[in-house]
Design a protein around this nucleic acid. Structure first.
Lengths: 231, 231
DNA sequence: ACGCGCTTGTGAAAGCACGCACAAAGTGGG
DNA sequence: CCCACTTTGTGCGTGCTTTCACAAGCGCGT
């Protein structure tokens, strides 16, 4: 166990790198499906939409898996990135809030692509509980703790209205879930050690609007309607 | 024009700040709904989940809208951030790909919260075209250019399968749309000047998995099954 | 009118992230 | 066997982000 001189992967991969690894992985899998055996950093970077130096530096954090003069072996790299991301094991996911978005996620095939398995769907609405969505019976939110325990849920997805999100997050944490993906438009308050990532459609649109406005010269509407100070 | 000593807002708000402004805005609106009139950077920062110094620096990029010793006037700040983000004008959004996710977005009320209006839904499937979703008739993808022109669409949302996303993006760009929100799991190739933001559920899960694995000591499953080298 | 307490706005320092450019290392042809 | 060519891995400079710490400013009570 301590006999490997090159020290494969350091503890401490930059966050920015971690965020790009899934993109590389997906790109590599597309290449693999097309039968490509090896790929240069230049080609992979261009397919993944990043700078080639950045890609090489990112990969160097996992160890030296390339061959100078040749490139990277696609198959091997897919394996290494998968392992680094923890996709070689199975992750049980529970979705709370089976509204439009929750149902869309439950039915979204791409979820299970690698290692993720939807283990439970929960909702607070009695009218929804018991219905069958994506081959699963919707359970009641009150069973959250039991479901987390029995199904070994380690990732919680919140697709409830904003008002209920914090309560659900707190219950998830209490039940031992320390990875949460939040689609509700609220800032979740969780203890240290719990990892929350948010996906917020409205925020993305607002960022787009900001840049669009800037591109359009910003003017439009004659720079604030002088007098509308709102004091 | 050169007579203002304090120079209100510089052209060039850091990207990191822009990404946080929507969060501040939402937090402020919640405070406003609760009847709060003024708020200190400390309180607002804590509600928004950021460091108070960061919040003050962010707001300082829009100008000096606070009062020392008191804090920020909620109502005024809401207005200033809205204006900066371009939410005082109306943005027409077109959604292409009316599958589970597209329908969920179309029905998602929070969309129209501020300035965003869903102007059109398009799909390639003849069986979907003509159906009524969220009070709109689904149009055929072939009418994209006409719809963009006639409805004044300036933001395109792509919720198609990965295979079709690039083609849709290209058509959006050709039709003059230069803000795209992409939910399909592919890297879009667009010319300079076009702003693409991506929302990728699968990537978020993978990032969560990475951190979860790291928390769990990484071990689990006895460090790679020795012999599964894949060379 | 004055001073005290509170809060903003911002220099300055530390930490990250990015991308260039190049040495090191491998391949293949002659 | 050697040389020319390709491609990786990385040292280094640059710019952006975050955080600290504090002076300047404002309101209130006396």
């Amino acid at each position: 166990m301590t006999s490997r001189p090159p020290r494969p992967r350091e503890r401490g991969i930059p966050e920015a790198t971690v965020a790009r690894l899934p993109v590389y992985l997906r790109t590599l899998q597309a290449l693999q499906d097309r039968g490509t055996l090896t790929v240069s950093s230049e080609d992979l970077a261009s397919a993944a939409g990043v700078n080639s130096a950045k890609l090489r530096k990112d990969l160097s954090h996992l160890g030296s898996y390339g061959t100078r003069g040749v490139g990277y072996e696609v198959r091997y790299l897919v394996y290494q990135i998968s392992r680094e991301l923890g996709l070689t094991q199975d992750w049980a996911v529970a979705i709370v809030g089976i509204g439009n978005l929750g149902r869309a996620l439950a039915n979204y095939g791409g979820f299970g692509t690698r290692g993720f398995r939807i283990a439970a769907l929960l909702d607070a609405d009695p009218a929804m509980v018991g219905r069958r969505v994506a081959s699963l019976d919707v359970g009641h939110i009150d069973t959250l703790e039991a479901v987390v325990r029995d199904k070994g849920v380690s990732i919680g997805v919140i697709t409830t209205p904003a008002a209920s999100a914090q309560a659900v997050a707190t219950r998830f944490v209490g039940a031992g879930v320390s990875s949460i993906l939040n689609f509700a438009p609220v800032v979740l308050n969780v203890p240290d050690g719990v990892d929350v990532r948010k996906v917020d459609l409205s925020i993305e649109l607002q960022i787009l609007a900001f840049h669009a406005q800037r591109r359009n010269g910003d003017e439009g509407h004659g720079a604030e309607p002088a007098g509308l100070e709102l004091t």
